[in-house]
Design a protein around this nucleic acid. Structure first.
Length: 199
DNA sequence: TTCAGGATGTACT
DNA sequence: GTACATCCTGAAC
């Protein structure tokens, strides 16, 4: 189980977003170890992207984490109820990150389903199965992450990313990002990456 | 199976 | 006061 180093994150954000597909997130909490495989990401780059919280290098209390060292977790509250997990990229001082939108369980799936729906994996309804971890808010719930973990290093024990099973280039699809209609021309940037082998 | 609408609180203007 | 990188419920088909 090889942990991705800071060099991995200290690169162009679009490259990192693409390269994160298929990697494994390891989350250790309350004596449990949760492992899942990343299947959908989006890039957010402050210097050119109106959808990014730090657009134009704007520093606020919230966006501060985006300026941190590569390999930092940026977790923020959205719509009053849900948390979104991002990994900070590029050199310290460059506000950019990759949003993790979707993943699938690798370790014991019952642990995930217990956290999310308080039942075993094979007891979930078809609806729950379809909506298991296919969105940033759901993913954070399943991994027990909230903005209390904002600023966490990805090189500690609680949260890290390993080599996993990297996606092949032909299985990566690009598309427009979700939920950023307000962002003018940035709305059309093809900065969303999905594993096409994934339903 | 799809759809509309409500929940909810923080950051920022 | 407004907008927000969303999700869930319940009703209609």
């Amino acid at each position: 189980m090889e942990i991705l180093t800071q060099d991995f994150y200290n690169r162009d954000t679009l490259t990192v977003a693409r390269d994160l597909l298929g990697r494994h997130i390891v989350r250790r909490v309350q004596g449990r170890e949760l492992i899942c495989r990343i299947s959908e990401t989006e890039a957010y780059i402050g210097r050119s992207d109106k959808a990014c919280h730090a657009y134009g290098y704007k520093r606020t209390k919230r966006s501060e984490t985006l300026f941190a060292a590569p390999g930092t977790a940026y977790i923020y509250l959205i719509y009053g109820m849900y948390d979104c997990l991002n990994f900070v990229t590029e050199p310290e001082g460059e506000p950019a990150a990759v949003l993790i939108r979707c993943a699938e369980p690798v370790s014991d799936a019952d642990v995930f389903s217990q956290i999310r729906f308080s039942c075993n994996f094979d007891e979930m309804t078809a609806y729950q199965r379809k909506n298991f971890m296919n969105g940033p808010g759901k993913l954070c719930r399943a991994l027990c992450l909230s903005r209390g973990q904002n600023g966490l290093s990805l090189f500690g024990d609680e949260l890290l990313v390993t080599q996993g099973k990297p996606a092949k280039a032909e299985n990566v699809k690009t598309g427009k990002r979700i939920g950023i209609d307000y962002a003018d021309e940035a709305t059309d940037f093809l900065w969303r990456f999905t594993l096409s082998e994934n339903a």
